[in-house]
Design a protein around this nucleic acid. Structure first.
Lengths: 124, 124
DNA sequence: TTCAATGTTCAATAATTATTGAACTTATCA
DNA sequence: TGATAAGTTCAATAATTATTGAACATTGAA
């Protein structure tokens, strides 16, 4: 029982829920980083964002983003790969995500993606 | 001492605060109604929205919208006239408000503006 | 098989936000 | 002047959200 993660269908994505989910600095930063550095989905795991909070807190915030329909979470081995649901959001709320991302790009990134904990560094 | 109401300057309007303020059904409905029926600012007083909650609750929510920089509140006699800060929001977050309003237009209005309490009806 | 890495869940707590009712202010109207 | 209408403020409470740490599950790798 792979306990599939819930994701709302595109037409179920609700504006108030989306706004609530994005009205939080941590989550706004997460989607902003996903937009900037998430071209290659392989890198975007939960622990990529550890500088934003504890494991548990991130699990919570990422769950919020997922349930609101903002990101897609794909289990892969022991990791979970995150990606923005750009197309779904665009078709549901045209122009919305782009305007958010453009504006958020001016925000200070309170997390430097380069400080990603590379403890057991098996990079590449 | 007219106790002038605080309004953030255009450049002080912050995205997270705006998103937080709009991530609430009541407040989303308020700005949606302002956009739809607020062409003539004279009609848009706090009590126009009484069907959305108590006087006190509205005072609270309208304060949130004002402090976030989303609406402008102009005292006029014993009333307060509300208007959307369309231009300020557009220059700060291009496309954002329009995308919100377009999407919110599909939301059910849990308040019918026609049910506006017209007790002491001195209309026009 | 054992270990380490990645995440989740749960219960407890902290912190923030929203709602209420009562009392109050200010302005208008008769 | 006195009454009413429109809103605010305050303190109390309710409700929601966020954070923590401990325990757990799952996968991949030595």
């Amino acid at each position: 029982m792979t306990n599939a993660l819930y994701h709302p269908a595109p037409e179920e994505i609700a504006l108030p829920a989306v706004l609530t989910a994005l009205g939080d600095e941590t989550r706004l930063t997460i989607i902003s980083m996903l937009a900037r550095f998430g071209e290659d989905e392989r890198n975007m795991t939960c622990s990529y964002f550890l500088s934003l909070g504890s494991k548990t807190a991130l699990s919570y915030h990422i769950g919020k983003l997922r349930e609101a329909g903002i990101i897609y979470v794909r289990p892969e081995g022991t990791k979970r790969l995150l990606s923005l649901r750009r197309a779904d959001l665009e078709s549901r709320f045209p122009g919305f995500l782009d305007s958010i991302l453009a504006s958020a790009a001016q925000l200070p990134l309170n997390a430097d993606p380069c400080e990603y904990p590379e403890k057991s560094g098996v990079q590449s």
